[in-house]
Amino acid sequence: MTEQPPTTDRTIADRLVRRATCTVGVAAAAATALIVGWLGVAHRTTTAAASASVKTVSAAPRAVRTTSARTTRHTASVSTATATTTTTTTATATATATATATPSTATSQPVATSGGS
């Protein structure tokens, strides 16, 4: 029966160093793989979001056209309303002026008491 060689400090140290180095190496490789995977997923997500954004931008002219049409209709409606208001105001002013002028003498000027725009 052969006798086992005594375990020296050097052997213990070598074993410890080898184990620790392997652990650190595996951890470093795993960390690298993890980061690569994570960056890949993040990149894919960003790319998908950017693609969706491009689709939204592509669809935008149609939305702009619709909005523009609505705005045109609205503007036309506002113009009609303004014209109506102006006509009404002018008619009121004329009526008031006539009413004011009626009791006065012939030399007095009719005064429009209601403001027209």
Binding site: V24, A28, A31, T32, I35, V36, G40
Partner: peptide, 17 residues
């Protein structure tokens, strides 16, 4: 993309080491 990600990841791990 894989090369690009590996470059960044190995750089970070090298810094930690």
């Amino acid at each position: 993309n894989a090369t690009w990600h590996l470059m960044r990841a190995s750089g970070v791990v090298a810094l930690v080491l």
